[in-house]
Simulated scan of single mutants.
Amino acid sequence: MKPLETERLILRPFTEEDAAGLYAYASHPEVGPWAGWKPHADEAESLRVIREIFLPSDTLAVIRKSDGRLIGSAGFVGKHRTELGTPSEEVGYSLARDCWGQGLIPEAVEAILRHSFADLGYAAIWAAYYDGNRKSKRVMQKCGMTYRLSRVEPVEQLNETRLAHYFAITRREWEVR
C-alpha cells in the first residue's frame, strides 16, 4: 500500500528499522491481548512480525507527525469476505497505550477507507473486534462501519477461542457519508 497522510499522521510501509518502535508499544501488556496477540517479548519478535505479518499484508506504520514517533499500525490483514461484494478486505489496527483516546486510529482508518474506495476500487472494507473491546468497536462506528455478523473464532496466538464481531462499510455507504 502506498504511504497515506492525514492532518496528524503519516501512514507508510513498515521497514525492518521500525522493530524498536514497534517493540516500544507492542510490548505493553494492554495493547496486544485485546487484538488477540501476546505482548512482544523483545525487538527480535517485533522484527519477525514486521517481516512475516506486516510486510506481506500491506499493514502500514502509523507515524505521529508532531514527533515522528511510530505509534501504531493500520492496514489490510489479508482476509477477504464476499458477502458485500468483491474486491473486499479486512482492516486491522493497533495503537500505543499512551495514545489511546485521541482519535488517532479513526483518523488512520479513514485514510485507508478513502484510499480503498477512491483509489483501489474496493466494494467493501471489513473490520472485527473481540467481545469486550469497546475501543475497537468505537473506531469502527466512528468510521461509518456497521455491524454485520458475529462468530466464535480460534485465537491461535493466545490458544483460546473468542467471540468476534464483524463490522463493514460498502463503497456506496462510504460515498453517501
Results as ranks from 00 to 15, higher is better:
residue 2 K to Q: 13
residue 3 P to C: 03
residue 5 E to Q: 13
residue 5 E to W: 00
residue 6 T to V: 07
residue 7 E to A: 12
residue 8 R to V: 05
residue 9 L to D: 10
residue 9 L to S: 08
residue 10 I to D: 07
residue 10 I to V: 15
residue 11 L to F: 04
residue 19 A to F: 01
residue 21 G to E: 08
residue 24 A to C: 06
residue 25 Y to E: 09
residue 26 A to H: 06
residue 26 A to T: 06
residue 29 P to L: 04
residue 31 V to P: 12
residue 31 V to I: 14
residue 36 G to E: 13
residue 37 W to K: 09
residue 37 W to T: 06
residue 38 K to M: 11
residue 39 P to M: 11
residue 40 H to I: 05
residue 41 A to M: 09
residue 46 S to T: 05
residue 48 R to K: 11
residue 51 R to H: 03
residue 51 R to T: 05
residue 53 I to G: 00
residue 58 D to T: 00
residue 64 R to T: 01
residue 64 R to F: 07
residue 65 K to H: 08
residue 67 D to E: 09
residue 72 G to E: 09
residue 72 G to S: 11
residue 72 G to K: 08
residue 77 V to L: 15
residue 79 K to W: 14
residue 81 R to F: 15
residue 83 E to M: 15
residue 85 G to N: 13
residue 85 G to I: 11
residue 89 E to N: 07
residue 92 G to T: 15
residue 94 S to V: 12
residue 95 L to C: 08
residue 99 C to D: 10
residue 99 C to P: 02
residue 102 Q to N: 05
residue 102 Q to C: 02
residue 102 Q to I: 01
residue 104 L to Q: 03
residue 109 V to M: 13
residue 110 E to N: 15
residue 110 E to H: 14
residue 111 A to R: 10
residue 115 H to E: 13
residue 115 H to W: 14
residue 116 S to A: 15
residue 119 D to M: 04
residue 119 D to P: 00
residue 120 L to S: 09
residue 122 Y to M: 15
residue 123 A to V: 03
residue 124 A to T: 04
residue 128 A to C: 12
residue 128 A to M: 10
residue 130 Y to D: 00
residue 131 D to H: 02
residue 135 K to N: 10
residue 136 S to P: 01
residue 137 K to A: 14
residue 137 K to D: 03
residue 140 M to R: 06
residue 141 Q to A: 12
residue 142 K to I: 00
residue 146 T to F: 04
residue 153 E to F: 06
residue 153 E to M: 14
residue 157 Q to T: 04
residue 157 Q to Y: 01
residue 159 N to R: 14
residue 161 T to G: 00
residue 163 L to P: 01
residue 167 F to M: 05
residue 168 A to Y: 05
residue 170 T to V: 02
residue 172 R to L: 08
residue 177 R to P: 01
